[in-house]
């Protein structure tokens, strides 16, 4: 109990103090009106969620995110397994991966609009593109870090190629895959909000842009806070899932011992 207090008191205390200071400075007019009081943002958040206007946008954003993220994960795992297990495929594509991966995905938005227009298709393509790379790189890392002794063991027992892939390589690569899922889930959400903001007709990003244009400052902040909270929850959720699925991985075991 006291350990939990010691752990959480400093960070929570800091946040409370910070909010209190901003609250006072904002209410007394020291801060410009573009920075509303935290209480006003909180009230706006509850109101907009309550009357459904922000809830609907959140649902739209999460829907787009989920579809695109699932596509990215599926594509990247297949690509990662192919590249990780077939040297020829790796040699053929690794340079391309190294060239494309560092290109900021957001810089591709104009190109995506050119090819796919302003609709949902363009948004999905952008999110898939952005989420694909960290997913691929982590999957590839997982597959390529499979211990040669582990593979020799499987071969020694006459394990078939398919069995080795499904029952040895895939589980051994799971820690890398899980990290990829966690990292690209957060990234996919960020890009979802971005494309909604730049070229959307719905979603949290679109809501933020609209609120800004109509000078509804507190609701704009409320939507930003909501997207932040969503990202945090997604990351925390996948981190938990990761700990449960790859509980046997040395890195998870180490952090469990340390924690």
């Amino acid at each position: 109990m006291s350990a939990a207090v010691a752990r959480w008191a400093p960070p929570l205390g800091f946040v409370v103090v910070l909010f209190a200071v901003v609250e006072v400075l904002s209410r007394t007019g020291v801060l410009p009106p573009d920075i509303p009081a935290p209480s006003a943002v909180a009230i706006a958040l509850v109101r907009e969620l309550g009357d459904g206007s922000l809830t609907l946008q959140l649902a739209t954003t999460l829907g787009t995110w989920a579809v695109a993220f699932a596509i990215a994960v599926a594509l990247a795992i297949v690509a990662g397994l192919l590249m990780g297990t077939i040297p020829l495929v790796y040699d053929a594509f690794s340079t391309l991966v190294d060239l494309l991966r560092p290109v900021p995905s957001v810089s591709m938005i104009p190109l995506a609009i050119l090819f796919f227009g302003l609709g949902a298709e363009m948004r999905i393509v952008m999110i898939v593109y952005a989420a694909f790379w960290p997913m691929l790189v982590n999957t590839l890392y997982g597959v390529r870090s499979v211990d040669p002794v582990t593979l020799d063991t499987a071969r020694n027992f006459g394990t078939s190629g398919i069995d080795t892939l499904a029952r040895v390589v895939l589980p051994a690569a799971l820690p890398g895959i899980a990290t990829g899922i966690r990292v690209s889930a957060s990234l996919a959400l960020a890009v979802t909000v971005t494309v909604e903001l730049v070229a959307g007709d719905s979603g949290i990003g679109h809501y933020i842009a609209q609120a800004e244009q109509s000078s509804r400052i507190a609701p704009m902040y409320a939507a930003i806070v909501l997207s932040g909270l969503t990202g945090w929850l997604i990351n925390a959720g996948f981190a938990r899932l990761e700990d449960r699925v790859v509980f046997w991985s040395p890195s998870v075991r180490r952090s469990a011992e340390a924690g």
């Binding site: 002794v149 582990t150 020799d152 040895v168 589980p171 051994a172 790859v246 046997w248 991985s249």
Partner: peptide, 10 residues
């Protein structure tokens, strides 16, 4: 020799 690498940790 290297049992830790030969056994499947999962």
């Amino acid at each position: 020799q290297d049992y830790a690498r030969s056994l499947f940790p999962w």
